[in-house]
């Protein structure tokens, strides 16, 4: 029998530690990838994962049974990443996109491929504000639906549609500028 995330969270809130372990197994890599996409360094993303689960433990009794665990945990993650991101941006001046200090990959070819891709991705998304970037990542990379995003951000699905529309418009405009630069 497979328990749903929500059932596991209720069990954990009632004191079943093993239920928490299962939630951790289900979400640790996913949350790390989300954090890694939003934050600059690997260690900051790792800290974010730890903070998210810490907050899950500390807020377990505040979890409302029936509420989507995915929405809840990503809401927590978004807050943690926002907090860590603020500190990180203050500490790191990221002028050079060739800085590879945050990319800890063993295989050289993979390493190079990742740097190139990361640069292209960063270049493409650089016109976005941190919150816009986060929303886009949750939508396009995590594949979360507008209803879930509305839950996470505390707005309506309609508002999410409008925000996504504007973000993509912004990207299209930014891309056009980059394309024009490339042609010169």
């Amino acid at each position: 029998m497979t328990f749903s995330d929500e059932e596991l969270m209720v069990m954990f809130a009632a004191g079943t530690m093993a239920a928490f372990d299962m939630l951790y197994e289900r979400y640790r890599h996913r949350l790390f990838r989300f954090a890694r996409s939003c934050l600059i360094s690997v260690s900051a993303a790792e800290d974010a994962v730890q903070d998210v689960f810490m907050r899950v433990i500390r807020s377990a009794t505040q979890y409302r049974p029936g509420y989507s665990f995915k929405s809840w945990v990503f809401q927590i993650a978004a807050n943690c990443i926002r907090d860590i991101g603020r500190v990180e941006r203050k500490m790191i001046c990221r002028n050079s996109h060739n800085d590879t200090s945050g990319l800890e990959i063993d295989d050289r070819s993979f390493h190079v491929r990742r740097i190139v891709a990361a640069n292209e991705l960063d270049q493409y998304l650089k016109v976005l504000e941190p919150d816009e970037r986060m929303l886009l990542i949750l939508r396009e990379y995590e594949g979360l639906k507008t209803e879930t995003l509305a839950d996470i951000t505390g707005t309506s699905p309609g508002n999410i549609r409008v925000r996504l529309h504007r973000i993509r418009q912004k990207l299209a405009a930014g891309r056009s500028a980059v394309d024009r630069e490339g042609e010169i």
Binding site: F32, I105, A117, L121, Y124, L136, E140, Y141, L171
Partner: peptide
């Protein structure tokens, strides 16, 4: 955006 994310291998 989806294409760029897919080209951006993410480890766990």
């Amino acid at each position: 955006v989806r294409e760029l994310f897919n080209q951006h291998p993410q480890t766990g």
